[in-house]
Amino acid sequence: MELNMFSVFGKQLIRGISTSSCACGKRNFKKFPVYNKRGTKEFKARQAKNPHPDVPIHHYGVRPIGYKTRTGFVPVNELIPEIVVPDLTGFKLKPYVSYRVGDIVQPPMTPEELFGAVYVKKITEDFKNGKLGPDNQPLEPSPEESLTPEKAKEKILSIRSDIV
């Protein structure tokens, strides 16, 4: 194709060269992807009945919940996501936390703090009620206090293995 252009200095010839293939029109589906929502109604109906193999079906990041067969689609129950929502009736907290709330910095708990959080209340109650023996051992020990060190270690290890 030749184009004749005129300039101030005279006649200039400019020749345009096309580098694209002549099949870049409607037939080259890879160059011009037409996804699910971009086609016409006729195109969508045609794709639903007999999908063209060169036109990709775009799922928008959603994982399939089954597989296709020659006759249709077979859903698999294990692939269907199950959303577990707890019952929040009577729940006092609100679902929103303001961005103006300051950061809460809490150092790791020391052994003394852990002992104070778990045992101090029971020991002070036993002391006030006179339920301590001659060696300050409890006369009526709780189930946790009556465990031997080996049993306590086994209990902690079993709890950890249940959590993990």
Rank of each mutant, 00 (worst) to 15 (best):
M1R: 01
E2K: 02
L3V: 09
L3C: 09
M5I: 08
F6H: 06
F6T: 05
G10H: 08
G10C: 05
G10I: 06
I14S: 12
G16A: 12
G16C: 09
G16I: 11
I17F: 15
S18Y: 10
T19S: 06
S20C: 10
S20W: 13
C22L: 12
C22W: 14
G25F: 10
G25N: 11
K26G: 10
R27Q: 14
R27M: 11
R27K: 15
N28F: 05
F29V: 07
K31V: 04
K31I: 08
F32P: 00
E42L: 08
K44D: 11
A45S: 09
N50D: 11
P51M: 15
H52I: 01
D54G: 00
H59T: 03
Y60G: 02
V62S: 06
P64V: 13
P64F: 13
P64I: 14
K68H: 15
T71R: 07
T71M: 10
G72M: 04
V74W: 04
V74C: 02
N77G: 03
L79P: 01
E82W: 06
V84P: 06
V85M: 07
P86R: 14
D87I: 01
L88H: 03
L88Y: 04
G90C: 03
G90W: 09
G90N: 00
F91K: 01
F91T: 03
K92F: 03
K94V: 05
K94S: 02
Y96H: 01
S98V: 04
R100Y: 06
V101T: 00
D103H: 01
I104L: 07
Q106I: 03
M109R: 06
P111S: 11
E113D: 12
E113Q: 15
F115A: 14
G116T: 05
G116P: 02
A117G: 03
V118A: 12
V118G: 02
Y119H: 07
V120C: 14
K121R: 12
K122Y: 14
E125W: 02
F127Y: 13
K128D: 15
G130R: 01
G130I: 04
K131E: 13
L132I: 06
G133M: 01
P134A: 15
D135Y: 07
P141Q: 15
S142C: 06
P143I: 15
S146Y: 07
S146G: 03
P149V: 10
K151E: 12
A152W: 15
K153T: 13
R160H: 15
S161M: 15
V164A: 14
